[in-house]
Amino acid sequence: MDPVTTNKLFPRLAKVLALCASMPLAAPVAADVNVYSYRQSYLIDPMFEAFTEQTGIKVNTVFAKKGLIERLVNEGNNSPADLLITSDIGRVLQGVEAGVTQPIESDKLNDTIPANFRDANNHWFGISARARLIVVAKDRVTEDELTSYADLASPALKGRICTRSGKHDYMVALIASQLAHNGEEATTTWLSNLKTNLARKPQGNDRAQIKAIAQGECDVAVVNSYYMGVMLSDPEQAPAAQTVRIVFPDQGGNGTHMNVSGVSMTKSAPNKMDALMLMEFLVSEEAQALYAEVNHEYPVRTDMKASNMVAAWGDFDYDSLSMSDIAAQRALASKLVDRVGYDN
């Protein structure tokens, strides 16, 4: 910029500022439902679009994997958010603990959602579920070699198991459920034996574990059912997914552990009525069918089936222990992971 153009500096700045003003500076609040979501937008947008189509109410979202509860806490009573959506009950419970949610009395929600998938005090409600499966190499593991999470610690599986990091939400939740059922001592032994059974240092996500079985790097992996669905419907990844057989663990025992996405109404929700309408819509047959078909998830409604592909994996009993009891063990579960050096 030479000295002569200094006079033009301010018009230029004004132009830039005008452009900024054309961007959405403030959050839209009125007559919409505003959602803070720990789940990726592409997983929940189809349900929101259906809701908007049906009711004419727009849904605004912010998606982040970290910090949204802190945002709610700091924004306090003036927060524009109406709903908090998470991919795991542990996270939604952190919101409840932080005091940013409110209880909702809705017969529709209470009648539709099984009791262990919602909060006894009505602060949170489960809206969709994935099963924490064990998958095994079809050609290297026999039908009855492995039927429970406890079997993952069996010496016969030494050097044959792959999992993602023990610190991931889904692994922490699984370990927390073991803690809730079996106590600290038994779970520590179990986790440390599982650690010695690992074929490699925990890494990648669930999809990577399935690929590792296909490559012959390991024979057994613990994965979320959602990823099996996604891989089987992707032509590029289906061959890897077809090399594994699905085991629903703990049938006849505690039942298979579930990862449940939850929704909570914020304490300060400015659009309470509309937000409640959205909550109820999310467990409606229409939205639950979308969860099943688009996301390969299990509906929380007991009167609805999973998608054809997912249903073909078989019926199973899920762990009926309350999600709150499991989530209460999360911090300890995370510490156990450190103590046995699971990720080392």
Partner: peptide, 17 residues
């Protein structure tokens, strides 16, 4: 991700999701 307004996407947030 955590500070943005509602419905506001950048190229990086789209990559991330």
């Amino acid at each position: 991700l955590v500070l943005r307004p509602f419905n506001f996407e950048t190229l990086a947030t789209q990559v991330y999701q």
